[in-house]
């Protein structure tokens, strides 16, 4: 009853101005959260658009793609300058995410979306569990016998403001990382969301990058992955300017703020925030697959 009334009110009582202002405010929050965990804001934007504003999922996904690019570019400007992003590893792994995104765009019609949502939900649940399990781990690799990582010199170092020291780390597991990134790119093109949700575990769990570097580097990469499929979405008419405008502006503002916060919080806190967000995304995915 109340739900029905609210629905009527939202659909017929909310004017374009109110819609734009409310969506802008929510997008700021999405930008802050997205820039911290390296996921890109779609996590917040899609359910708000579909559940609160009853907007078609295809348009919501178009807006999500825009929010991913906005979070990525808005926050990466800061992360790159502060050396939180591992530029070399990020660009190297983009080989896999972009090719994954292009093949994913072809496969959209082949795969049943429902099964994908369920599979993805299960994978994310597992990642959430694995990251939660190692939430207190702080040790970084000091040597690596990964030949690809050594050849391309993907190792790095960053200044940790929370620990007040420069932390040098080595990278390993590039083959597993590349494979996971390929899947992440495919998923991004197929479902329009969730590429960061696979990228962060790939770097944190498989490649042993520090958690903050993982989210900052994921954040750096998601923009390129999303751009690889954004052309398709734009041409198909899934990017509605009235929805995308407040999302883009709000998310950018939020991401610029969020990127100033990441350095100051500990790796453990970042892991816990990430796990919470991941669990929410996993539930979202499973629900969409089952219902």
């Amino acid at each position: 009853m109340l739900d029905g009334f609210l629905r009527m009110y939202v659909q017929y009582g909310v004017t374009p101005l109110v819609f734009v202002v409310v969506l802008l405010a929510i997008s700021v929050l999405a930008g802050v959260l997205g820039s911290l965990v390296g996921l890109g804001g779609g996590v917040v934007v899609v359910p708000v658009l579909t559940l609160l504003f009853h907007i078609d999922i295809r348009l919501a996904i178009g807006a999500s793609i825009v929010s991913v690019i906005a979070t990525s570019s808005g926050a990466a400007a800061t992360y790159v300058r502060e050396r939180m992003t591992n530029l070399r590893a990020g660009m190297f792994l983009e080989i896999a995410t972009t090719t994954g995104a292009v093949s994913g765009a072809y496969l959209t019609t082949v795969f049943p979306a429902r099964a994908l949502f369920i599979l993805f939900g299960v994978v994310l649940s597992y990642s959430a569990f694995a990251i939660f399990h190692k939430r207190h781990a702080t040790a970084v690799l000091t040597s690596s016998d990964d030949r690809i990582a050594n050849y391309f010199d993907l190792h790095g170092s960053y200044y940790d403001e929370a620990e007040k020291q420069e932390i040098a780390y080595k990278v390993t597991g590039t083959k597993v990382g590349l494979a996971m990134m390929y899947v992440a790119g495919m998923v991004s093109a197929l479902l329009g969301i969730g590429s960061g949700a696979l990228k962060v575990p790939a770097m944190d769990l498989a490649m042993h990058l520090p958690m903050k570097v993982s989210t900052a580097t994921s954040n750096f990469m998601i923009g390129v992955t999303a751009a690889a499929s954004a052309g398709f979405y734009f041409a198909r008419g899934q990017i509605d300017p009235i929805i995308a405008a407040p999302v883009a502006v709000g998310v950018l503002g939020g991401a610029m703020f969020g990127s100033r916060v990441l350095g100051k919080i500990t790796n453990t806190s970042v892991r816990i925030i990430f796990v919470v967000v991941l669990v929410v995304v996993a539930i979202e995915m499973l629900q969409r697959g089952v219902l």
Partner: peptide, 16 residues
């Protein structure tokens, strides 16, 4: 009309 606080809906602008 878009900028009013009542009397119009965002919905026609945000449909497929």
């Amino acid at each position: 009309g878009y900028a009013h606080l009542s009397g119009s809906s965002y919905h026609p602008l945000t449909m497929l």
